[in-house]
Amino acid sequence: MNINATLLGQSIAFAFFVWFCMKYVWPPLSAALAERQKRIADGLEAADRASKDLEDAKEKVAEELKAAKTQAASIIDQANKRASQIVEEAKEQGREEGQRMVAGAQAEIEQEVNRAKEQLRAQVAGIAISGAEKILEASVDEAAHARLTESLAESL
């Protein structure tokens, strides 16, 4: 074991390698790792934020759904009401129409009856006159008896 200038050589080499490592190896490695750490932290934060956003969105969806359901229910309710109203109205209209038709028919019938009465009366008057003519077998003053027969027919 003899100590010699190898020691100096080794020391110089050692100093050089440490200097080189300090200058050109450590800083870039350190920077790369720090940057990766930051990126990972950012990524995790973004993931947290996204999951929170998702939670919020879910809540909002539930709210909207609830509102929509309420709205739909009220619309259906309204529609039902309106439908029953329409039905009521239609019923009312139908009844009125029916009544009107019945009234019209009755009026017509009355008219027919009256007309038939009128005809009948006229015919009866004629028959009565000709019957009376036949009974009397004499010519009677038609004009004098017309009033008589007419009042007779009217009393029928």
Binding site: Q10, C21, Y24, V25, P27, A32
Partner: peptide
């Protein structure tokens, strides 16, 4: 000693230079 030291610094330098995050 110097040869192995050079292997060390050159290897690590090549990685450090192209180090990606």
């Amino acid at each position: 000693s110097i040869g192995l030291g050079l292997i060390f610094i050159l290897l690590f330098r090549s990685v450090a230079k192209n180090a990606t995050s």
